[in-house]
Nucleic acid binder design. Sequence first.
DNA 1: GAAAAATGAATGAACGTTCATTCAATGATG
DNA 2: CATCATTGAATGAACGTTCATTCATTTTTC
Lengths: 209, 209
Amino acid sequence: MNNHSPTANSPQSASAEGNRPRVRDKRSAILRAALELFAEGGVNGIPMPLVAEQAGVGTGTIYRYFASKELLVNELFRELKVLVNRRLYADLDLHRQPREVFDELWQRMVRYTREEPDIYRFLELQDHRPYLDEQSRAVEREALSPIVGQYRALQKRGVFRKDIRAEVLMTLVWGAFVNLIRAERDGHISLHEDDIRAARDACWELCTG
Amino acid sequence: MNNHSPTANSPQSASAEGNRPRVRDKRSAILRAALELFAEGGVNGIPMPLVAEQAGVGTGTIYRYFASKELLVNELFRELKVLVNRRLYADLDLHRQPREVFDELWQRMVRYTREEPDIYRFLELQDHRPYLDEQSRAVEREALSPIVGQYRALQKRGVFRKDIRAEVLMTLVWGAFVNLIRAERDGHISLHEDDIRAARDACWELCTG
DNA sequence: GAAAAATGAATGAACGTTCATTCAATGATG
DNA sequence: CATCATTGAATGAACGTTCATTCATTTTTC
C-alpha cells in the first residue's frame, strides 16, 4: 500500500499501544502480500524479494518480522486456519435441524471460496505442505476434530448412516467439495447455482444413506 | 537402485532390440528415476543431478534425451497418463451390469494406488501443474472425456440420477476418491477393506440418487 | 579411427538470507 | 527553542548456496 511514507500512520499519538506503532501494519502487509502471491504462484514459485515489493517494504524488513520463509509460511497458515474456522462456525446454531446446519455450512464454505479465494486457495495448496511444522499440523488437526465430532454425533442420533465411519464420511464429502471448487477454478467446469445446490444435496444424501 | 555402475545394463548383447540398444534403457531409467523422486519430493524439490544419480547416468545425459526439466516433466506426465488409462480400462466389459463395471473400476483404481503409488501420486501432484504444457493438458482432457461420456450414458439409461450434470457427478466422485486415498497417505486416517467398500457403495449411491 | 554417446565439472541465473548503512523520531543539552 | 546526540526500524546491495543447463573431454561403438 503505502510505499515509504514516514509520517503516514501515527505521528505523535504513539502513547496508545505502548510505543511501537507501525509494527503491526508492516507485519500485516507482509502477510497479506505473501498470501496474495503464494495463493497464485505457490510458495516455491514466489521469491522473497517479490513478497517484499508487494508488501511495500524492503526485503530485509521481512526478516525483522519472520525469521525465515518457512516461518512466514507457517504463521500465515496458522493465522488463516484459525480465522477461517472462526468465521465458518461463528453463530452456528447446532440446535437447528441437522439438514439446515449442513446447508448453512455448505453455503458458508461456498461463499468463502468466492469472497476470499486467496485464503481458500492458499489453505488448500499442497505446495506448502513440506514447509508446515508440527504446530501447524496440530492446528489443522484441531480445526478438523469438531467436524468429525459432529459427524459422529449425527450418526448417534440416527441422522447419518452408521455403516461408514465418521472420518471416512467426512473425508468423502470434503473431497467432493474441494474437487468441485477446484474443477471450476481450473476451468474444467463452470458451476451454476443449481450445480452447487445439487452437489450439496447429493453430499447430504451420501451422509444420510 | 544401481548407483553408478557403467557396465550394469547391456554389455555386448546389443543385437536384441534392433541396433539402438541402450538408448531406450537410458531414457526409461531417467523417466523411472524422475518418477520415483518427483512422487516423493515434488518436481520443485528435486534437482536434476539427483535424478541423474538415481537413474545411474551423468547429469548431462539427461539433456540428450530431454531438452529441459520442463519437457521431462511433461513427457513423464503424458506417458504415465496414457499408460494408466490403458491399464485402467483394459478389457473392461461395458456390457456388464453398470454396478459391476463401477465396482470393477473402483477396485482397479484402489489397486493402482497400492501397486503403483509413485505413479498415482505423481499424477495427482499439484506441484507439477505450472510445468504442464498445452499438449499435456490436452492428454488429460482426452483421458477424462470417455468417463464423462459413460456418466452421461448411464444417465440416459436411467441408471444415474439426472438432476445433476454428468461432469459435476464425476467431479464429486473423483474428489471423494482422491481425498480418501490422500487422507490415508497423509496419516489422517487408516483405511480397512470395509472402509473402501463402504466408500465405494456410498459413491455409487451418490450417482444413482 | 571416425562418429556417436556419455560424462560431470563448470557456469551463470536465481534464490533465501544477511548486514553495513540510512534516517526519521526521540531525548538531552544549554 | 534551537541544537546536537542517540536510537533502532528500515533498507537493499551483496553474499553464499542451489539449481538447471552447458560443453570440453572421455568412453563406447562399429
